[in-house]
């Protein structure tokens, strides 16, 4: 009796889960299909497997050139990459020392500092976008990689601080004390003990800030004017404007741009969850 009931139950559970999963995967499958099938519009079909296959969309995206014959995809890829890498470096470099101080020292203003980092991390950069735009305009940094890196750092630094502080807190102080007894300086303790021990956390943090910068759309859209200086998200958006939409190229581009970061995401998501939920709460 009990066996039968639980079997019915598990079938039901599976049915629900399968339905939800299909609904979840369907849009992505459609994009996959579109990227491989000819034509610029979505087809009138629910079948996610393409009837005719072509790689022409991928070719279009990869070989796009502007008026003066510059290879757009290459440039945009490079822009995205440079922006993301510089943001990561800036974030991790500045944040690792700050996170260490917040984790190990007790000093006046510590709680306040933590609070500022938390508040900034919670509130999006979109809020200070307007003043940033005005300031960068005055400084002549619109449309430049440097300007965008500065803007992205506003979100990257607090995020990195929190992720790293959470991890530093888990490293036992005894290790540092041992190093201290062996004659290491304060900086030596940080540099030779704590940092090597937190390599995994550093890697995760770095990859996350890389991903965030890589995936950012609206700030890039606002701050960049020139096709050759676009990052990849801006390029993708421009395939599907209001009046004319090339969904094929968009789909192909979306897959090219997002597959690597999606893979990264899957590798890292557990760390992200613990970082997001644990890092912020403990004072």
């Amino acid at each position: 009796m009990i066996g039968r009931r639980s079997r019915v139950k598990s079938v039901l559970i599976h049915a629900v889960l399968i339905t939800v999963t299909v609904v979840t995967l369907f849009p992505v499958a459609l994009v996959m299909r579109k990227s491989l099938s000819p034509g610029n519009e979505f087809e009138l079909s629910l079948n996610p497997i393409p009837e005719k296959t072509t790689i022409s969309h991928y070719k279009t995206v990869l070989s796009a050139r502007d008026f003066s014959g510059r290879w757009l995809f290459g440039r945009q890829l490079w822009n995205s990459f440079v922006v993301a890498v510089l943001t990561t470096i800036m974030g991790v470099f500045l944040a690792s020392t700050a996170a260490y101080a917040l984790s190990r020292f007790r000093f006046p203003g510590r709680r306040f500092g933590m609070m500022i980092f938390l508040v900034v991390q919670m509130f999006p950069a979109t809020l200070i976008m307007i003043p940033l735009y005005v300031i960068l305009d005055r400084l002549g940094l619109l449309d430049s990689v440097l300007g965008l890196v500065l803007v992205y750092s506003t979100t990257a630094i607090p995020f990195c601080v929190f992720m790293l502080k959470g991890y530093f807190d888990t490293i036992p102080r005894e290790l540092e004390e041992a190093a201290w007894i062996d004659g290491a300086s304060r900086f030596g303790m940080f540099w030779r003990v704590v940092l090597p021990l937190s390599k995994p956390a550093l890697a995760v943090t770095a990859l996350f800030s890389f991903m965030t910068a890589w995936n950012e759309y609206i700030l890039a859209e606002t701050f960049l004017n020139n096709e050759a200086s676009y990052t990849l998200p801006v390029m993708l958006k421009h395939y599907v404007g209001d009046k004319s939409a090339d969904w094929g190229s968009f789909a192909a581009g979306a897959i090219l741009v997002s597959l690597p970061v999606m893979a990264l995401f899957y590798m890292l998501q557990k760390a992200l969850v613990s970082g997001l939920t644990a890092g912020g709460v403990k004072g």
Binding site: L25, L236, W247
Partner: peptide, 20 residues
Amino acid sequence: LLILPWAVPNYITALMWKGM
């Protein structure tokens, strides 16, 4: 499979649904 939507960059999600 179910965390896939989280992995897709959200601007792509948005544009994809706009198409849908």
